[in-house]
Amino acid sequence: MINNRFLKQLANSFLDLLPIVMVVLVFQIFIIRQPIPDVVNLVFGLLLVVVGLTLFVEGLEKSLFPIGESMAFAFARKGSLFWLLVFAYSLGFGTTVAEPALIAVADEAASIAANGGMIGNTETAKDSYALGLRLTVALSVGFAIVIGVIRIIKGWPLHYLIISGYCGVVIMTVFAPAEIVGIAYDSGGVTTSTITVPLVTALGVGLASAIKGRNPMLDGFGLIAFASLTPMIFVMAYGMII
């Protein structure tokens, strides 16, 4: 299976990683002036990263992109808006609720809330707060993908929706408790994982190519943008209610 293309991709991955290595080495040697601890692990670990990135990009073109696109075409041909929206919602909710980065942020948010006296300082109170937060974010991402898919179908201009979303964030910032604002802003960034992004992008672009009168470049992108925007609003709302 090792062919020219694979080797080329391997070289590309190595180049992608080179800047990180340079930054780490330069800072460690010239600025911090400390020896690099554990050179063997560093070199071996970097090799793993290069191979991993190469496999990921190879697999992307073979699986995640075709799956997302073929499902978009199948739904468009079937013409069932209901099932398309159910699919969009499940994809958003299902991929977010178990996202490790989100779990970490939710736990940290629970400690902040407990320290700030918003909830009781017990394990149960913190756990239920963290779970509530995760469900809120997952719900908002599901909602975001649904809105994004409706937008592609209807051909609404993206920027009006995003700008209204920004206004929503600004208004919520005024009313939300100060402790939640930082977490809310960050939660927008952590929802989109390495597997979700290619799938959702391919779904959007596939839908925009399958529906007549839509341009994949103009209408196909934007699903991720919704998925990063709505969690901010929903998390601030959660902070106000709790």
Partner: peptide
């Protein structure tokens, strides 16, 4: 392709964790 993606992400994460 799916196996590639899985293996790729796992190797990638493991390498990052290590290095």
């Amino acid at each position: 392709g799916f196996v590639y993606v899985l293996l790729g992400i796992a190797l990638f994460l493991e390498g990052l964790e290590m290095a």
